[in-house]
Amino acid sequence: MIDQRRPSDLEDAERLVQRLLSAIPPRALPLGFRDEVMRQVTARTTLTWEWIAAAVLAVPSLAFLIFQVVDRADEVGAALNNIVAAAASDSSDAFFFVDGTVVLALAILGVASLIAAHAALVRPVRRTTAR
């Protein structure tokens, strides 16, 4: 007769341990045990580092872009005026130039914002799961 509770793939060396552990009567877990375990699990997956990394990456790019807007507001205005004028005219050619550091700053700001969004979105989900 096959014991239904015993795993079928036990090695000889494991049978004694299996018999010993099977002899222990089942006991109810203490109240709050699950909550405590889940608290430890969620505490281990804290995303504080994501907030720090996002802030560290965002601040220089943001400061640079603000400086650019303040320092080159007239150039931005002139470019926008030319864009509106070109949209209304029938010119078939146009010249465009943008400083690559602006592109770099915008890309890094976007990445930092995504890291912050991830930290903000994942934490409530994990908290809900823990409950």
Partner: peptide, 20 residues
Amino acid sequence: GSLANASGSATRRPGIFFDP
């Protein structure tokens, strides 16, 4: 980049430029 193209310099390239 900011200092090399600061507004004090005489001939600087615009940060953004569009002209037909």
